[in-house]
């Protein structure tokens, strides 16, 4: 891989908030490990692993999730196990949002995935729910829904309704919107973002990078996070996530939610074997609410992953 050239502003912004600047930028230069998870809706894990071993595919267990594995093999997508949907190739950090909600979605009646395409996280939610309950998998982009549908079908997901709405206006249409009492127990808000954290697999992110793009995304995310929170049933929870380092799209969005709504609690997230960084205390001149410390930053050099941000928000009863 050719050496990445980071915009000066990018280096300035993140060099000062990361714990180890050298390790951070070195890690961004390294190729991202290929990862996959076993799809329990269709497959017996032990059998799948045996199948892959028999084909000479080497893989390693991931310490923080029993169904996830990493491999250097490029052939993993060319196996019959992948063709049938026994395994799903998915970036490790993309497995975190559903995983952090695993306990509560197990018995959830209604889960809402606000920006679902292409379906990596939706299929993971369905797996963790054992194909029970209901997931509304929404995406505003009609063309990306094709990929969402394909992946849901391939992985044998039965418990979904696909919708095609602009989430900011989700359910407000009297002719067909979400009506009482169908308030979700859990909302996954994997928001559209500037995608800086994906640079290890998509270096073109740097060519598109600008602060203007970040500010534009943040305006959209503010509207989406409020909508997601307002739809939640009291006592329910939402995971807000992005694949970017930009505080404007992360801590500032959660700060915005805290300022706009009173019944918000930011919960601390833990995952045995995985190292989370805490949310920032301040960005520029702006100091954040102390609850923002409970937000989780995933720095690539901590776990050899892409960059990510997650927050678990509870709607207080």
């Amino acid at each position: 891989m050719a050496e990445l050239q980071f915009p000066k502003k990018f280096v300035e912004r993140y060099g000062k908030i990361v714990d180890d600047e050298k390790a951070f930028f070195e890690c961004l230069q390294a190729r991202l490990p290929r990862a996959f998870r076993v799809n329990n809706l269709k497959a017996e894990k032990s059998q799948v692993l045996k199948n892959l071993e028999q084909k000479g595919i080497e893989f390693q267990k991931v310490p923080w999730y029993e169904d996830a594995f990493v491999t250097n093999s490029l052939d993993i997508g060319n196996t019959i196990d992948h063709f049938i949907g026994y395994i799903y190739i998915q970036e490790l950090v993309s497995m975190l949002p559903a995983l952090l909600a695993a306990k509560e979605i197990k018995s959830a009646q209604l889960v809402l995935d606000a920006a679902a395409a292409p379906g990596s996280k939706t299929t993971h939610l369905a797996d963790l729910m054992g194909n029970k309950g209901c997931i509304i998998a929404n995406d505003r982009d009609f063309w990306r829904i094709k990929a969402l549908k394909f992946n849901l079908e391939k992985l044998g997901v039965l418990n979904t309704i696909i919708t095609n709405q602009d989430f900011r206006f989700f359910g407000v249409n009297k002719k067909g919107g979400l009506e009482e009492p169908w308030f979700p127990n859990f909302v996954l808000m994997d928001a559209p973002c500037s995608s800086e954290g994906t640079v290890r697999k998509d270096p073109d992110v740097l060519a598109r990078w600008s602060e203007k793009n970040i500010f534009g995304m943040a305006r959209l995310q503010q509207q989406m996070v409020l909508k997601g929170f307002d739809l939640l049933t009291p006592g329910g929870s939402m995971v807000y996530s992005t694949c970017t380092f930009a505080p404007e799209e992360n801590e500032e969005i959660i700060q915005f939610l805290l300022e706009k709504r009173e019944d918000v609690k930011i919960e601390k997230c833990e995952l045995s074997g995985f190292r989370f960084g805490t949310g920032l205390e301040k960005w520029g001149e702006r100091e954040f609410d102390s609850q923002i410390q409970n937000c989780c930053r995933v720095w690539p050099h901590h776990n050899n992953t892409g960059g990510f941000f997650l927050t678990k928000v509870r709607k207080v009863e």
């Binding site: 194909n131 309950g133 829904i145 849901l152 039965l158 418990n159 979904t160 309704i161 067909g176 169908w182």
Partner: peptide, 20 residues
């Protein structure tokens, strides 16, 4: 084919597709 929970909710949304 889908779950009973999906079938209960589907009338309240505008679906593109439901289940499998």
């Amino acid at each position: 084919i889908t779950t009973k929970d999906v079938a209960k909710i589907v009338g309240g949304v505008r679906p593109v597709t439901v289940g499998l």
